[in-house]
């Protein structure tokens, strides 16, 4: 529309109907539009509500499985069916059997890292000032009962190692130590840092060591060299195991081949 026709209804010269028709042509798409109506009140089939009801039941059942809100330990969050047991229809995959000495050295190394490495260092040579070396030490490679009681009870007072007298205080390492752990860590230090006894401290020997420790008394405090010399200059009792016998690395059970 031109300028002078901006108020077509008030302009005598223009044909009102014609200018409206021009507008309709120019905006054909919007002129032919229908009016929106939303007031439909058609009856809705009951099947729809039945379908909604079924969805509601299924959804409700799923939400119900979630239980209540819990902010407990991590184990509480593990859902049933998400930790799998034995594979359906398949065989339990067994760990590859390994020689017992390898298994014990490997397990013992972990315990050594956690309990011993702080003082005796990762190379097992001590710090040269307060803590004696484990390598080239007769106390380590010698009688297993004495070694086990040093580990379990701790040690107080002077001790001669590697041609030198050390006067430190070692605390007890008995906390959380099982027979298998003790056997593993003893096997590890007896076969590392230059020590090569080549034998294995068996789990039964570990049990014997713990029995000796309990017999001495859990509250008896750190042991002294004199007591070791008089009472524990002997080897632990228990099954003597061939170092090369194959065991399951998880269960430590012997595997016959």
């Amino acid at each position: 529309m031109s300028e002078e026709n901006s108020k077509p209804d008030l302009n005598e010269d223009s044909n009102v109907l014609e200018s409206h028709m021009d507008l309709i042509d120019a905006s054909a798409a919007s002129s032919r539009e229908n009016h929106l109506r939303e007031n439909g009140m058609e009856p809705v089939s009951l099947w729809v509500f039945l379908a909604c009801g079924i969805a509601l039941i299924i959804g409700g059942a799923v939400i119900g499985k979630g239980g209540s809100i819990s902010f407990g330990a991590l184990n509480d969050y593990v859902l049933n069916g998400y930790i799998q047991g034995d594979p359906p229809g398949g065989e339990v995959v067994e760990m590859q059997p390994k020689p017992i000495i390898d298994v014990f050295v490997k397990n013992g190394a972990k315990i050594y890292q956690a309990k011993c490495q702080g003082c005796h260092q990762s190379n097992g040579l001590g710090d040269g000032a307060n803590y004696p070396p484990l390598g080239n030490s007769e106390w380590v490679t010698g009688e297993t009962a004495a070694l086990s009681q040093i580990i379990m009870n701790g040690l107080m007072g002077p001790i001669e190692v590697d041609g030198r007298v050390w006067n430190g205080a070692m605390p007890s390492q008995a906390a959380g130590m099982t027979a298998a752990d003790l056997a593993a860590v003893m096997t590890y230090i007896r076969n590392s840092f230059g020590n090569e006894t080549g034998d294995v401290v068996s789990v039964e020997m570990g049990e014997n060591a713990i029995a000796k420790y309990k017999e001495r008394g859990v509250a008896a405090g750190p042991i002294q060299v004199a007591e070791l010399e008089s009472k524990y200059k002997l080897n632990l009792e228990g099954e003597v195991v061939d170092p090369q016998v194959k065991v399951n690395p998880e269960t430590l059970e012997k595997i016959e081949e």
Partner: peptide
């Protein structure tokens, strides 16, 4: 918390 997963699945 398992409820979050089940709530999501239900919704």
């Amino acid at each position: 918390p398992p409820l979050l997963g089940y709530l999501g699945a239900g919704a």
